[in-house]
Computed example of a mutant assay.
Amino acid sequence: MGFMKNDALVRCLKRPRCFYGGCPIFFYTSPASFVIVPLCFKFFLRCCMQISCLILAAGKGTRMKSSLPKVLHPVFFQPMVCHVLAAVEQLAVSQTIVVVGHQHERVQSALAHYPVSFAVQTEQNGTGHAVQVCEQFVAGDADTVLILCGDTPLVRGQTLQAMIERHRAEANVLSVMATEMADPTGYGRIVCDEAGQLLEIVEEKDATLKQRRIREVNAGIYLVDRNFLFKTLALLDTENAQGEIYLTDIVGLARQRAVKAGRYICPDNREILGVNSRQQLAVAHDIKQQEFFVALWDAGVTLQRPATLSVHPGTVIGADTVIGANCSIRHNVRIGRRCDVGANTCIEESCLGDDVVVGPGSVLVGVRIDAGNVLPAGTVRVSGEKGGSIL
């Protein structure tokens, strides 16, 4: 069986196996002898595409009214950009590049323990320009680029994977994530023809009144063929309402050049929430907190007046435990089974055994409470050894 030489094929042959949807596409016994399961050759190459991920995190976040870089504002107890990185970690990407700009040293320091590299955008000249500064850093064997924003902490790895699968299945050169919004204010609009084919993305400031009535919006997440992306970006100008290089303009150019482009519709529009204000920051936190509450409920934990509770995602709580209203359960906490934690209690870096009762209004920091103990209301126990792991 003979094939023309292809970089993607050569890369795949360096791997003992390549999987698609959990099924082996091929295996080989020696560099000169291999077997390919009968699949479309184009489809085979799509499965083997190498993805470089770019996370745009250079913005100042003026509307946050803060000296802290926007992507470092905490959502559910960690910087919002860390949630984006957590979603990307679920994917088979070959590299992740974070584009930094405003206070870039601070952002790089906060992400120093992540397996990422950085590209510095010294002048913020739009999303297209942010991607342009990454060109020299994208790995030589990458044929596809995944682009996300660092201020979308609710995006899920499963959603990104579904978009990748659609991109592969449709053999697209460009794929855009979109979603429906009841109120699309602030988002770029997805413009399609009568057949539903993607034509362009129009930023709200440049949209006509008719286009502003469109409820399908741009999520700011793209999958693009590497060569098409950077060649097209080089052609863009700043003739628009914001005087910037719009990444969205590559969609219109793809249409003009008859390049195959499509869109993936995100079923849950909350995932694409871009955090640009303190209000949106609070909304994103509440959504993440609620997701964790669901996990606790499923584990048999009772949460009284959950809207008043704050529970760190690393908290472990046993079945049949009741957490009273207005409690704050902070980091590094383990609570056993059948416990009763009274209202207005704060617990941090502590371990409670089974069947412990904590009276209302108590404060426990850095302590261990043995099984069966009953603490009266207003108990305050603060250990001087706070800081070590007790789990």
Rank of each mutant, 00 (worst) to 15 (best):
G2Q: 12
K5M: 07
K5L: 08
C12K: 10
P16D: 14
I25C: 11
Y28H: 15
Y28P: 07
T29I: 13
S30M: 01
P31V: 08
A32T: 15
V37T: 13
I51R: 10
L56H: 03
K65R: 15
S66C: 12
V71R: 00
V71S: 05
H73W: 10
V75F: 11
F76R: 08
H83D: 03
V84W: 02
L85G: 06
L91D: 05
S94I: 09
H102A: 11
V107W: 00
Q108V: 05
L111P: 06
V116H: 10
S117Y: 04
F118W: 03
E123T: 15
Q124V: 12
N125V: 11
T127P: 07
G128F: 09
H129P: 00
A130P: 02
V133A: 07
C134F: 05
Q136R: 14
C149D: 12
D151Q: 09
Q158P: 05
L160Y: 08
R168N: 13
A169S: 15
A171C: 13
A171T: 12
A171E: 14
N172D: 15
V173H: 10
D183Q: 08
P184W: 08
Y187V: 04
R189M: 06
G196P: 04
L199D: 08
E203R: 15
E204N: 06
Q211S: 02
Q211L: 00
R212G: 02
I214W: 02
R215H: 15
G220V: 03
N227P: 01
F228E: 00
L229T: 05
A234C: 01
L235G: 04
L235I: 02
N240D: 03
Y246A: 03
L247T: 12
D249S: 14
I250Y: 04
A254Q: 01
K260N: 14
K260C: 12
D268E: 14
R270D: 15
L273H: 11
R278K: 14
R278E: 14
Q280W: 10
K288Y: 09
T302N: 07
T302A: 06
H312I: 04
P313M: 06
I323D: 05
I323C: 01
G324Q: 00
G324P: 02
G324M: 01
S328L: 05
R330S: 09
R334H: 12
G336C: 00
C339L: 02
C339H: 00
D340P: 03
D340F: 09
T345I: 04
T345H: 00
C346Y: 10
G353T: 10
G353Q: 06
G353R: 06
D354I: 08
D355S: 10
P360S: 11
S362I: 01
V363S: 10
G366V: 02
G366I: 03
R368Y: 03
A371W: 01
A371G: 05
P376A: 05
A377W: 02
V380Q: 13
V380S: 13
R381N: 12
R381H: 13
E385W: 06
E385H: 13
G388T: 13
